[in-house]
Nucleic acid binder design. Structure first.
Length: 194
DNA sequence: AGAGCGATGGCCT
DNA sequence: GGCCATCGCTCTA
């Protein structure tokens, strides 16, 4: 199998509002270069979180945990949650303003056997259809927190443009549940939820 | 198909 | 001590 990739998305891609980035990132390709080979998937679902948003980790101000959200845009904010899962975000917006886009689901493209091993399932639509599943499939954990997504082990590249984009309420939050900041490629079978 | 819930540990007050 | 930007199992229908 061959995976043809152009250069990663530039820093400027991430240097704008998280709500814009969460939409613009749909269709782009997430790539993890592991010791055992390349794992890649097309992003089909993402959510926006901003500093003035009560549902965001950045809402309380900068702490050691969420510091990446306040730093240079285009870095990986990987956090640990529910005692057993990791979630991947890209930092967005200007330095000093804590915001990011949560990558919730990808359509597997490459390294599918590795993903099946990591996830202990063979069902393609269940490999990375959720933020915790995605990190498990890609082998991402706290070691990847802070990585530069424009160059190196973990990168995001241009991909096939999405078809119609749908927006909906975000999933799994208690506060600010009214913001329609979850975006996904309409009718794509790899999103976490309709 | 949908509701309920346990697992499991770091982070913040 | 309480709260999670989750997941998968079990129970009810």
């Amino acid at each position: 199998m061959s995976l043809c990739l152009s250069d990663p998305l530039p820093r400027e891609f991430y240097a704008r509002d998280a709500v814009e980035v969460a939409q613009a990132i749909l269709g782009m390709v997430l790539v993890h270069r592991t010791e055992n080979g390349i794992i890649a998937g097309r992003i089909v679902e993402a959510e926006a979180y901003t500093q003035d948003d009560p549902a965001s980790h950045a809402y309380i101000g900068m702490t050691p945990r969420n510091a990446v959200m306040f730093g240079e845009p285009g870095h990986a904010y990987v956090y640990f949650t529910y005692g057993m899962y990791y979630c991947l975000n890209t930092s967005t917006g200007p330095v000093g303003f804590g915001s990011g886009a949560l990558i919730r689901a990808v359509e597997p493209i490459a390294g599918i056997e590795m993903m099946k091993n990591n996830r202990k399932t063979g069902k393609l639509t269940n490999l990375a259809s959720g933020p915790g599943k995605l990190c498990q499939a890609f082998g991402l954990d706290r070691r990847h927190n802070g990585l530069d997504l424009t160059d190196g082990e973990l990168t995001i590249h241009p991909g096939d443009p999405p078809g119609e984009i749908a927006s909906a309420l975000r999933i799994g939050i208690r506060l600010a549940t009214d913001k329609p900041w979850r975006f996904y490629i309409k009718d794509n079978p790899f999103v976490s939820k309709k």
